[in-house]
Amino acid sequence: MLSVENLSCRRNGRFIFRNLGFTLAAGCFLQITGDNGSGKSTLLRTLAGLLPPAFGTISETKSCYIGHLDAVKPALTTREMLDYFAVLQGVVPDVTRASAAFGLTPLLDRPVRTLSAGQKRRLSLTRLAINNAPLWLLDEPTTALDAAGRDLLFAAIVHHCATGGMVIAATHETWPLVDIQHLKMGAV
């Protein structure tokens, strides 16, 4: 379970959002919507521990953060990239299983430089399968994904929630999921 209390985040001396609080039970999906600049990405980065909150508390939960950037190196192959993700997570890589999760198995030995934007996105999302974090933080995860890629992501999210995981996603997409909580971010 994740609980956020009284969370405020400040950048350049201005509050991006103030006094935000919510709790998320195991197996829940939270969709964050809001206008551009309303602080969706800042909230996710704060939850991931990349930004220190100005005030407030976040309960300690291991998370996996997928931001706007793919965090992949064009010079490496897909397999090497998966290995590196695993090293950074401090886990032993199970490349076969991880690559299957987002349909990358045929691309394992291709250099990342030759992948399309959507394929790079899939590679980036594969971190979710490598990292066994209970909380997923997804910032516009469907960017550049084709229909098949989206289906794989939905399936992964459904499976993650069914096994007691939590997902927080900033997206304006309509998700074919039953149990969705909403959080609308607005101007402070």
Binding site: A48, G49, L69, A71, K73, L88, G90, R127
Partner: peptide, 19 residues
């Protein structure tokens, strides 16, 4: 920083100094 790897390094449970 530009390709997002820096975020991954900062979140990683591996000590940042070692990376």
């Amino acid at each position: 920083a530009r390709d997002g790897t820096l975020d991954e390094m900062l979140i990683s449970p591996v000590p940042l100094a070692a990376i």
